[in-house]
Design a protein around this nucleic acid. Structure first.
Lengths: 126, 126
DNA sequence: TAAACATATGAATAATTGTTCATATGATAG
DNA sequence: CTATCATATGAACAATTATTCATATGTTTA
């Protein structure tokens, strides 16, 4: 392959209009990037933490198991809004739940959640 | 205060239509809830992780310092999109940057970020 | 079984947000 | 100083999403 051909190929591969990409770095990082699918899931996972209502629910549940009505009272929000958000948290497996008569009690599913919350609070406290 | 008065007060405080709130739990949790402002900031902070482009950028930067064009090439996206997202990451202090001539090099700002990414990956791997 | 009630859910609306396009800024080399 | 180029940014559009309202589901008690 001639130099000219190689350069043309690089330019084509490059999203930028020109060619001052640091190929060694890009190649090295490309090799260790997780699969697209995993990164999409990761973003979906964190999206759950990116809403203040859900953050409040998660923080509250880190203190105690609670029912829907308790949470609605604590956050001064409608039952429906809380229920919708709990569904999101359930789908992402961030909360567990148990039924006791008419009441559903929710709790945190595992302690990655607490670690993540704690790391986040450390970051913003800096 | 009569029982009737106390109950009426509870009902008023309750977002739910009726009154089967677990007051002890709600009160206990209310006492330890961080301030509204802190929880809002926390949600804003995590919102940054809730987008796949930004997750990819963060992951990439956890491997190596990179310039805007490198990242755009790696992710096969436009320079403008990457630049916009880097601005978000900058505002939340998730990345540092240094200038070298015409080129801006970005890197992760601290290791809470890596911890959070790692915890997230552990969670979804379960 | 019927009434009461805790929770869940579908539809609608309002608000937020990611990307693109066009252009601006700021640095370097000639 | 001018041309070139890496990056930044404003406006616009499309897509996503949080809450509310109305109603459904499922459990208990009379």
């Amino acid at each position: 392959m001639t130099d000219k051909e190689r350069i043309e190929q690089e330019v084509q591969a490059c999203v930028c209009e020109f060619m001052h990409v640091h190929d060694e770095i890009v190649d090295k990082v490309k090799k260790v990037m997780p699969e697209e699918q995993e990164l999409l899931e990761l973003a979906e996972f964190f999206k759950v933490f990116g809403d203040s209502t859900r953050i409040k629910i998660l923080y509250a549940l880190s203190q105690s198991e609670m029912c829907v009505c308790d949470i609605a009272t604590l956050l001064q929000m409608g039952q429906s809004a809380i229920s919708h958000q709990l569904r999101v948290l359930k789908q992402m497996r961030l909360v567990n739940f148990r039924r006791d008569g008419k009441t559903m009690f929710y709790s945190l599913s595992d302690d990655h959640i607490q670690t993540i919350l704690a790391q986040g609070m450390e970051h913003i406290a800096e």
